[in-house]
Design a protein around this nucleic acid. Structure first.
Length: 489
RNA sequence: CGGGGUGUAGCGCAGUCCGGUUAGCGCACCUGUUUUGGGAACAGGGGGCCGCAGGUUCGAAUCCUGCUACCCCGACCA
């Protein structure tokens, strides 16, 4: 009774906040819009980060680090880029504090004004391309495949834990290539990495697609994305990969000599995923009892609860099981807290989303079994102690798969084809709207009109969309393929 | 950034309209006893600058002004 979570059906936003706070993932901080990521939440993020990092390295990328601050003049070098970010930048104007003359505390020293103001990076394209100019001279310097793990700041009006915070953690990849084709291939290669990560590790099904001109990254020629559907029927942009063409190369004068001794501008990509993925993870799998984590990302995959409390004969069995599980690479903890009773522990571990719980009591030991409870379905079963580690290993695999299948089935159920604007609006009026596949005439004007009328936006033009003659649901003009609409986070 | 709501113990709240003992309750916490297979029971105990700053008053959690944080709904965005 101590920790109640609001039911999703009552208030979805509150449910989300309850999960984040009661599963100890994050807290609000003293700074507006910024969060404190707590150890348990950070543990999940570390698992995501480590896996993504491996995948980037496996595809030939290396990590580096660029400064937090960007000279103001850099940001304005690429016209669209600055326009996209100007409204949400934190600016450093001074470099010193002093005691207030009236003794009321410290104030900014007016004498310490910076010659050129510094922008706290909202993204790092500009400072990185400024640097790449020095690094790239010849086709032999290409491709340059660099990633950085960093924090960035975007001064948001309205924030939500993990989904949209003023400061967030992310990775941003910035690559330079000799040819358009190679850069385009890189953009799609990373999109595949993101999709694979989302589906195989987060168990979150995603749709790969292209953003419309209106939703494109400021300064990109083409933005690719992965889009996921949350349990409340709203879409979440989970990752983006941009083909930047030669825009930044031209803005920062980054040229190379090709094999024929001719000067050319380099071709660029950038791509990122952020702590927003945590929000997607939560809203894809969790339920009214708390967080549900896919085994591949859970900081603790198995918890053992002694019933009713630790005792020598139970400890002995628990320790044996722990050794066997650890040998299989499974993370496990033994809850020896004497102050809490089993029922309380069950509820608490469910709140934190630990995939598998093993209960061991004297009655179990007499029968040579343990109680195995899985978080995803809440099912409990007795299993022979003999071979328990292998059973748990298989169960973790099953849970991982079940979470994906369940989310995929939900998305399939909530993705509908619609051919009239009335039907379109009817779908969006449902409690849980979902994805709508519909025809669109290809103009930004129509896209904005639909957004104004319904609040739904074009999430993407799916990469696997089939050619199909149709008419735009709003204007009736001809269209050659369906695009994916949804209300979005 | 606009509209609405809420800030009282770690958490959830009552009290605020209509100013007046020592500011209450539930959970959590501490001590002890009995318990223990799905959020234990009893007894005792600790914990508050009533969001912050001014003002009105003999007297303010309560009235007035300003600020701030959070939540909901818009606009903006990953």
């Amino acid at each position: 009774m101590a920790k109640e979570i609001t039911n999703r059906s009552e208030d979805y936003s509150q449910w989300y906040i309850d999960i984040v706070k009661k599963a100890n993932l994050a807290d609000n901080s003293a700074v507006r819009g910024c969060m404190v990521i707590k150890p348990y939440g950070f543990g999940i993020w570390e698992n995501m980060r480590d896996q993504l990092d491996r995948m980037f390295k496996d595809t030939g990328h290396v990590n580096a680090y660029f400064p937090l601050f960007i000279p103001k003049s850099f940001l304005s070098r690429e016209a669209e880029h600055v326009e996209g970010f100007a409204k949400e930048c934190a600016v450093v104007t001074h470099h010193r504090l002093m005691n207030a003359p009236d003794g009321s505390g410290v104030v900014v020293d007016p004498e310490a004004k910076l010659e050129e103001e510094l922008i706290v990076r909202p993204t790092s394209e500009t400072i990185i391309w400024h640097t790449y100019k020095d690094w790239i001279n010849s086709y032999r310097d290409l491709p340059l495949l660099i990633n950085q793990w960093a924090n960035v700041v975007r001064w948001e009006m309205r924030t939500r834990l993990f989904l949209r915070t003023a400061e967030f953690l992310w990775q941003e990849g910035h690559t330079a290539h000799a040819t358009r084709q190679e850069a385009e291939e890189e953009t799609l290669k990373i999109l595949d990495v993101y999709a694979t990560f989302a589906e195989e590790y987060m168990a979150m099904p995603v749709i790969k697609g292209i953003k419309t001109a209106n939703e494109r990254f400021a300064g990109a020629e083409e933005t690719y994305c992965i889009e996921a559907l949350m349990q409340d029927g709203k879409a979440l942009q989970a990752g983006t990969s941009h083909f930047l063409g030669q825009n930044f190369a031209k803005a920062f004068d980054v040229k190379f000599l090709n094999e024929n001794n001719q000067e050319e501008y380099v071709w660029a990509t950038s791509w990122g995923v952020s702590t927003r993925l945590m929000g997607g993870l939560i809203m894809t799998h969790s339920d009214d009892q708390g967080l549900v984590l896919p085994p591949k990302l859970a900081p603790t995959q198995v918890v053992i609860v002694p019933i009713p409390k630790p005792a020598p004969e139970i400890d002995e069995v628990a320790e044996k099981i722990m050794r066997e599980l650890k040998d299989l690479g499974i993370s496990v903890s033994y809850d020896t807290d004497m102050r809490k009773r089993p029922g309380f522990k069950f509820a608490e571990h469910e709140m934190r989303g630990i995939p598998v719980r093993l209960g061991i009591g004297k009655r179990d030991l007499e029968k040579g079994v343990v109680e195995v409870a899985r978080r995803d379905t809440k099912e409990k079963a007795s299993q022979p102690l003999e071979g328990i580690a292998a059973h748990v290993q298989q169960l973790l695999t099953d849970i991982q798969q079940n979470l994906f299948d369940r989310a995929a089935a939900f998305r399939a159920e909530k993705t509908v084809k619609v051919d009239s604007f009335d039907d379109f609006k009817a779908v969006l009026d449902q409690d849980i709207p979902g994805f709508i596949s519909a025809h669109w005439d290809g103009t930004t004007e129509t896209e904005l009109k639909i957004k104004e009328l319904t609040k739904a936006t074009i999430r993407c033009i799916p990469l696997d969309a089939e050619e199909e003659e149709g008419k735009c649901i709003l204007t009736g003009k001809p269209s050659s393929q369906r695009v994916l609409f949804a209300k979005a986070y």
